[in-house]
Each structure stands twice: as C-alpha cells, then as structure tokens.
Write a protein that binds this DNA or RNA. Structure first.
Lengths: 305, 305
DNA sequence: ATGGATTGAGACAGGATTGGTATCGATGCT
DNA sequence: AGCATCGATACCAATCCTGTCTCAATCCAT
C-alpha cells in the first residue's frame, strides 16, 4: 500500500532535484531515499523522476503527481491538527439549552466569549424551559443546560453560575423613580405586573416569595411570560414590575430600575447542568468559559443604572 | 509519522464499530488492528474511540477525525489514479503548433478526437508558420508541430500525416463549374487568385508548380494569405482559385469545387514533427490519434461535393 | 585526453516494525 | 453463577526499513 513516507520522500526529491540534498532534508541517507522513491514508483507503476546520474528531473507523470502529493501531505497535517484540536476540546460541537430569560444578558455574553476563545466549537442553541432541558439532556438532545432551580434528576450534575437580585422596573415618570431603593411600604398598593405561573413559574415564585417575605400586597395586574413583554408594559406606564437585575440591561427606554431594600436572601439563580457521564472536553471548556463569565462578567448585586 | 495503514484501520473500525468485523474487512486479525489504532491515537495524542469492552464508540475527536481520514484516503486514491493515468499518457498537457491552413479541417478533427480519447490531456494550441514551429519545438515552446514541407532540423523527427490534392474553387455560376474535372486548357487565361509568396509560401509554391507542370499561364490576380480570404474572393466572382481539397469543406456558399485532371504528383502534404528525444507518452498518444485521423478520417483523393 | 569528483543505485547487516497466535480481563446475557 | 463476547496484552516470526560500504556513470578540470 501507498506509504506517506514514500510520498514525503518523493516531494523532497522533486523539490530539491537532488537525492543527496533531499536525503539531508529528510534526515536520512541517500540510499534508502532512493529506494523509497523506487518503491513509490513501483507502487504506482509509473516513473516519476528521470535520473540522468547527473541530474534529476520530473517526468510528465511526476509533474502531475507532485501537486497531488503536496496536497496529500497538507491534508494529512490538517487532519492531524483537527484531531488534536478536537482532542483539546477546541474543535467540535455542543448543543446548549437555555431558558428564555437567559437570552437577554448571560447567553449573548457566553456566545461572544466562546467565539473568541473557541472559534471552532460549533454551538447549537435551543431555547427551552427548565423541565424540558432535563429531558433534553437525558436524551442527548442537548449537552449543556442553563436553567432555573429547583430541579433534580438522576445522572445530571449541576453548578450555580449566577445569582442576582431582583430590581424594580418603573416608568421614568413614576414617583418612586426618584428613590434610591424601594422599601416594602413603597410597593404597598402599587400596580405590579406579574409573571405567568405557567410560562414563567420561576419568576412568578420569586416575586411571590419577595412579596410574602415583605408582607406586602400590591395590586397585581396581568400575567405575562416574557420579560421584555413585562418591560414594554412598564414602559407604557401600566405599572411597575420586578425583574432580574441583568434584564435591566435590556436597555428599554423610559424604564428606570431601582434596587429593593428588602428580600436580600431571595436571589434569582442560574444553574448549568450536564450529564454526569459526559466527559467531553468541549463541554468542559464551555463550562469553564461560562464560569469565568459569571465571576468576572458583571456585578451580581443590584446597581443603579 | 502518521501511517496511511493506521488511518485505514481507524476508518474501518469507526465504520464497523467493532474491532473483529473491521479486522475481517481489512483481511487481518484483531490484535494488530487494535495496535494500529492505538498507535494512531498515540501519534495524534488523542483518543479517537471509546472502548467499553462491549461496544466501540467514536469520541468527539474521533467524530471530527473520521471525515478527515476518509478524505485523506480518497485523496490518496485520487493521487494514485492521476499518476497512473499520467503514466499512461492519458493525463497531462501538450503544446501543439499548427499552420493556419490546418485550422480549417484537420485540427478541429484532431481536437475532437483527442477530447474523446484523452479528455484529461490539456491541449495548448498555437498557430504559427512552419519555420517558427521548428524554433518553438527546439525551445520547448511546443511539443508537437503540424507543418508543411520542406524543412530540416537536427533533433527533430517527423512523419507525414496527410497528403491531399489541390482542387479548383469556382463561383457557382462559372462556366467551368459544369465540368467534372478541369484540364490545363480549361485554366488557360482564367482569372486565378494567387497566394502570397510571403504569408503562404507553401501554397504559392504548390500552385506555381501545378501551373508550370501543366504549362499554363492563367491571369494571376491578388496575392492573399488566408484560404478563407481566397474563398471569399471566389464567392464574389473575382475569379477561381486552387485550394487544398480539405479546405473545400469550409462550406462557403456559392463556391463549387472541381478536381484537377492534371498534376496528380503534386500533393499538399502535412507533417507532424516532434523533438527526437521527447519520450512523452502524451505526445505518443496524440500522435497516434493524429495518424488514425489521417488514415480513416476522410479520403485524401479529390471528391466532388 | 585523462584523472578526480559527484551522483544515484545496489549489496548487505542490524534493528525496528508489523502481523499472527495464544491468552487475559471485563462485561453482558441466560 | 456460568458462559459468551469483545478488546487488550504478551510473545514470536517475518518483513521492512535504515545505514554503511561500494560501484557505475557522468561531468569537469587540468
């Protein structure tokens, strides 16, 4: 069978037009080099070089074969490099699931960081709710899930990547917009836009716990799922809303965010989860980047924009 | 260094997902196959297969490497085939020189025959006169020349490919167009369009010898180089002309060709010439096709269209 | 013209590599 | 629990590859 060493030998001789120099370049002596080229020619059944005992010249067949041979060696090197990079987890693909609310801040930052650090890792992104992500992990539909607590599933390992406070989103002309932070008394009786218990159960529960912990009963209006829909409501003056601090960076005009002076213990948490038996280095690298972003990306305590 | 056998082994195992079956497919036993794959993995520094002693699965790196490996094997096969075809003279390139008058009939037939028999031989065609072709052969500018006698040059080998009669080209309404063949007496005193002694010296000489041999003195008008220009003159009724029989197939309307009843010994000859030391198989094949065309292509004796 | 230098090929020995046989350890199924 | 299957390992024989030495052919210089 054709040997790559033979091809390498031929290319060297063809480029040097001299067996001795080619042998030196290949760190070998001339006789075995001659033999390798002979073997190649015999294998092909074609004379590639015309030896005149004083000079070496390519035959027509050699002229045809030389670029093919070069391409072959280059392809080989490429294949080796690809395998090595894949082995390091710098090349490959990963399917990532994420909850809708992550698409506003965390996910874009993760994606751009991955593009920078691992440009050859192909990302397949899929928006789904926490419960679906657990099933998708188990069925290998996704390899990594960014989701909300609580969850529990066998064979799934998870770690918290983000914890942030809820902030109040107010119309710019709202009286409370002048305050630095809002107290429970501020919210009492206010029009508060609420999350749907079905589509956004996690945020529904967070807000509910916040209200209960502070023992306040605002007037709850609407029940929406998407945070940007909630913010649109706020913008048009329907009322105020409680949103995760990161969502305040959505940059919707006419909306002012203010921290809450209560319920510090109630945080919005984001977990990433993967199959416990998944030893993929791509996964490992992606999770490392996600962890790095979570640490250094933005402060997780509320800030006043 | 990376071995193609290792790549082949890996592809077989990856496709079968089973060392035993892969070994059978490769006509070898399982242990050395395992070893080859291990060597490949060690060479790459990457684990390509995940062996669970009950099943074999590709790792992510293996998934990346498999298509690369397949491509590599395919490229190898392609390179081998290309070299073999080049060795047979079925792949390569050849530069061919030809005289202007060959472009009308012989060259088109040669080209189409070559396209059919040797589709991967690249033709580089260049029109030039006989004297220039000898120089171009010597300087390797062309490899094969189709040209007119007489010529002589050291290191050039030639053979005659065509010999054809001259025929008379007449306007369709010419009185002589009714004849089957023209005698010397028919031509006496006729308006005869002549070739330039400079640009078409060969045809000038042929016509001159024909007239001398038959001892006729027509009225010579014009001195043109290109046969199609001559025929245009004939078409518009300027006079008659003597043209090589093959040129009568140019298919110019309003022109009738008639054989000559004299000067049988004076033929238009076409030679092909090449460097005597050129051992190219492409050249050999092209010359064989040219010879075949010359023999079987068309009758070389005048015929009445 | 003739001797020296250079070039590629051939002969041969030693060592590495490859493929085969026998066997082991692990895992899944009955 | 025992058997079958599968991949890995150990070991051996054959082959192949490489390096040294050498030769034939050619070119160049004297």
């Amino acid at each position: 069978m054709l040997q790559l060493t033979q091809v390498r030998c031929f290319v060297a001789v063809a480029e040097e037009c001299h067996f001795g120099r080619a042998a030196a370049r290949l760190n070998m002596t001339q006789p075995p080099l001659s033999r390798q080229v002979q073997l190649l020619e015999h294998e092909l059944g074609v004379e590639l070089l015309e030896r005149t005992s004083r000079s070496v010249r390519l035959t027509q067949a050699g002229t045809v074969f030389l670029p093919e041979a070069r391409r072959l060696l280059r392809s080989t090197e490429d294949a080796v490099q690809a395998a090595r990079r894949a082995g390091r987890g710098a090349l490959g693909q990963i399917a990532i699931g994420f909850t809708p609310s992550n698409s506003y801040d965390f996910l874009p930052r993760l994606i751009s960081a991955l593009r920078a650090d691992y440009p050859d890792v192909e990302l397949m992104l899929e928006e789904m709710i926490t419960r679906d992500q657990l099933a998708a992990l188990a069925s290998h539909r996704i390899d990594l899930a960014f989701m909300r607590p609580p969850f529990e599933a066998a064979g799934i390992r998870s770690r918290r990547v983000l914890a942030e406070r809820m902030v109040a989103a107010l119309p710019a002309d709202h009286p409370l917009a002048a305050r630095d932070a809002l107290t429970p008394a501020d919210l009492e009786g206010q029009e508060l836009i609420m999350y749907s218990i079905l589509g956004s159960g996690y945020f529904h529960d967070i807000v509910h716990r916040l209200l209960v912990s502070a023992n306040i009963r605002p007037r709850l209006v609407h029940h929406l799922t998407q945070i940007h829909a909630v913010l649109s409501m706020v913008k048009t003056g329907v009322g105020m809303a409680l949103i995760p601090e990161s969502a305040s960076r959505l940059g919707i005009g006419n909306v002012i965010c203010r921290p809450l002076a209560f319920g510090e213990e109630i945080a919005v948490e984001l977990f990433m989860a993967h199959r416990a038996d998944d030893a993929s280095l791509v996964l490992e690298n992606v999770m490392a980047v996600a962890a790095k972003i979570a640490e250094t990306g933005r402060p997780s305590t509320p800030s006043i924009p």
